[in-house]
Amino acid sequence: MNIKAAISLLICLGLHAWGMAQDKYFTRKGEVDFFSSAPLEDIRAENNGAMCVLDLNSGKVEVSLLIASFSFKKALMQEHFNENYMESGKHPKATFKGVVEDIEKLDLKKQETQTFEAKGVLSIKGVEREVSTSVTMKPGKAGMEVQTTFIVKPEDHDIKIPAVVRDNIAREIEVNVNMNLQPLER
């Protein structure tokens, strides 16, 4: 085997490994909480089990979480959330599937907050809606911090609020996402 062939083989192997390298980031413990502020009461719930994979090559991102894993201050509220509003038995998950635009501008070496625009489809209670939101990413030694906040309207996702509790539940609910993504090793 001549030297040229050997070198090109090595380069190819190297490229192959590089192609497979840490271009994807993930978490299984993403934090998602929501906040509803209405005249009669404020409601907050949190979920620490969101799964997310972000592909830095294409900018594609996917998030999935279990509705039943949201925890509330009041146990009964949590029961009603699952039973009456979200019907988590029928629709166990909420998902987001989309793209972070201009992801190639992300500089992994710069350990500071960089802002991007994410667009995609948010699916809650089986109802899909196009959404876009601004996302901040901060690469660091302990992983990449990803943060975003957006608004969800219950009526957009077929979540019916009866008149008796109309003043207890906000028409626009703020959703906060905080994730620490780690390189996905294979």
């Binding site: 497979m20 994807k24 993930f26 799964m51 294979r186």
Partner: peptide, 13 residues
């Protein structure tokens, strides 16, 4: 590989 992953990124987990 990239083509196969079109399905769902979350499957990687």
């Amino acid at each position: 590989h990239a083509q196969e992953e079109e399905e769902s990124l979350l499957d990687l987990l």
